[in-house]
Design a protein around this nucleic acid. Sequence first.
DNA 1: TGACTGTATAAGCAATGAGTCATACAGTCG
DNA 2: CGACTGTATGACTCATTGCTTATACAGTCA
Lengths: 123, 123
Amino acid sequence: MNVKTIARRKRHARLSPEAIDMVAARFRVLGEPLRVRILEELRNGQKNVSELVAAVGSTQPNVSKHLRTLQESGLVARRQDGNQVYCYIDDPSVFDLCDAVCTSLSRRLVRDARLAPELHRAR
Amino acid sequence: MNVKTIARRKRHARLSPEAIDMVAARFRVLGEPLRVRILEELRNGQKNVSELVAAVGSTQPNVSKHLRTLQESGLVARRQDGNQVYCYIDDPSVFDLCDAVCTSLSRRLVRDARLAPELHRAR
DNA sequence: TGACTGTATAAGCAATGAGTCATACAGTCG
DNA sequence: CGACTGTATGACTCATTGCTTATACAGTCA
């Protein structure tokens, strides 16, 4: 696929199969709670792997693997400093996605609450 | 979780584990190429199941199952009309997500092309 | 050099989920 | 009613992937 195929895409034009695969792949990376958690932790600044392990409450190999996934997708970058590896957000637009989803979900929750208020009454 | 917990979330405040799970779940729904394809097909208006099956080139049971997933996540709604079931977008903000990902991906592709132009030269 | 810390990787297991096939169900039409 | 069409569901297979454990590798410090 030409490099700028996606960029040049007209509004509402059909995405190519390759483009759809890339879009779905990006969403799939964000479809894992632990990875979203890691991104949230990095939202306030870089952290090294150990700090992330402690912050998200998982094992070091597991966090390391998720960081690899996040890096390969271009969302996170890593910088080695001596013994440690510092991770930081490489594509801040990912937070726009998260915020948009939060907004959409909260709208839905409020709407559902209106439809069935008895299920959501404060305790 | 209180209904408006997500809605009231402060900017950069930490998301609750439940909120993170919900966000990841929404992304996971979008992490399947066929589902993105179905959403794209519905972008220009409602379609019944048979039309979707023909449009996306999959089997009827498979499309039906993905439609169920899309409906349960609140992205798509269905309306029965006689023998047929018409599907339509129930949360148009999903296209904002897709477009944002496309923009991000194209930026990355262009950037990578600058770093390694020989890999992206037009054939 | 050797001991230690921080990170990455490999192997194995278990769960998830996409796809297929067969079939059930519902609506229409004769 | 029976035949037919459109859609949903259940059972199954297979590939993917998250997690764990053990281990390898790299950097630091004595």
